[in-house]
Amino acid sequence: MGGHVNLIPIVSKIFCSSSQVVLTVRTRPHIVNGGGFVVMNCDQRKVFSVDGCGTLGAKGELIIRDGDGVAILFIRKKGGVVQAISIQNQWKGYLMDYNRPDKLVFSLYDPKSFLAMKNVIRISLELKGNKKGWDFEVTGSFHERACTIKDRRGKVVAQVEMKEMMASKDFYKVVVQPGYDQAFVIGVIAILDNIHGESTRC
C-alpha cells in the first residue's frame, strides 16, 4: 500500500485524485463549436472542455468547463499599456461563480518571444502571504507535446506527451501526478495552447 497523498486543490479538491490520472486531449476544429478542446479520462468520459475565442468571441479569454459543461475557471490575458511594455505576458485565472469570474486563483507569466530562450513560463498562486514569487514552472516544448509542469521544489506535477502510435498533435495525453488539481493543470494547458496559436486561438 502506498503512503498518504496530500491533495493540493487550486480550483477544487473534487479535481484532485489520490492516484495518477492519465487524461486524453482532443482538439476541436474551429468549425466545430468554435474550436478549443475536449479532455477525456481513461474510460473515454468527458471530464473537461475548453472554449477559446472561437466560442467566446474575445481574444485572450478562455473558459474551462467540467464534464457536465459547468464553467469552473475563467482565464484572461492581461492587456493595457503597462502590459504592452512589459517583458512578459500575464494571464489571470479566476474561479467561476454563477457563470461570472469571481476569485483570482493563479497568475501565469509568459516571457515574450524575443526572451523565450532565456526564461521559462512560471505560475504563482494567489495565496495570502505568498511571497515566494512563483509556485510552478513549465519546461520543455508544448508545441512538440513534450513539456512538464513542476512545482517550486522540482517535483513533477503533470506531463504533456504524444499519444502512443499517434502522429497528430491534435490528440495527446496529459499525465497528472497524485494529489494535484487536474482542472488547474488543464487551465495551464489551455493557456499554452493559446500562446502557441493552436485550437483556442481564432
Results as ranks from 00 to 15, higher is better:
Asp51Ser: 10
Asp51Gly: 08
Asp51Tyr: 05
Cys53Lys: 07
Leu56Asn: 11
Ala58Ile: 08
Ala58Asp: 02
Ala58Ser: 03
Lys59Leu: 08
Gly60Tyr: 11
Glu61Thr: 10
Leu62Phe: 02
Ile63Phe: 03
Ile64Asn: 12
Arg65Lys: 15
Asp66Ser: 06
Asp68Trp: 00
Ala71Val: 12
Ile72His: 06
Leu73Met: 09
Phe74Ser: 07
Phe74Arg: 05
Phe74Val: 09
Phe74Leu: 04
Phe74Gln: 07
Ile75Asn: 04
Ile75Arg: 04
Arg76Gly: 03
Arg76Met: 03
Arg76Tyr: 04
Lys78Ser: 09
Gly79Pro: 04
Gly79Thr: 09
Gly79Asp: 15
Gly80Asp: 07
Val82Lys: 03
Ala84Pro: 01
Ala84Met: 14
Ala84Arg: 14
Ile85Phe: 12
Ile85Glu: 03
Ser86Met: 05
Ile87Gly: 06
Asn89Thr: 11
Asn89Ser: 15
Asn89Lys: 10
Gln90Val: 14
Lys92Ser: 10
Lys92Thr: 06
Gly93Ile: 10
Gly93Lys: 07
Leu95Val: 08
Met96Ala: 04
Asp97Gln: 07
Asp97Trp: 06
Tyr98Asp: 08
Arg100Cys: 15
Arg100Asp: 07
Pro101Glu: 15
Asp102Tyr: 01
Asp102Ser: 04
Leu104Thr: 07
Leu104Phe: 01
Val105Gln: 00
Phe106Ser: 06
Phe106Met: 11
Ser107Glu: 10
Leu108Ser: 13
Leu108Glu: 11
Tyr109Ile: 02
Asp110Cys: 02
Asp110Glu: 13
Pro111Ser: 06
Pro111His: 15
Lys112Cys: 00
Ser113Cys: 05
Ser113Glu: 15
Phe114Asp: 11
Leu115Glu: 05
Met117Tyr: 10
Lys118Tyr: 11
Asn119Ala: 14
Asn119Phe: 09
Val120Met: 14
Val120Phe: 13
Ile121Leu: 15
Ile121Arg: 08
Ile121Phe: 11
Ser124His: 05
Leu125Glu: 06
Leu125Gln: 08
Leu127Gly: 02
Lys128Gly: 12
Lys131Leu: 10
Lys131Tyr: 08
Lys132Leu: 03
Lys132Gly: 04
Lys132Val: 09
Lys132Ile: 06
Gly133Ser: 00
Gly133Thr: 06
Gly133Arg: 02
Trp134Pro: 01
Asp135Phe: 00
Asp135Ser: 00
Phe136Ile: 02
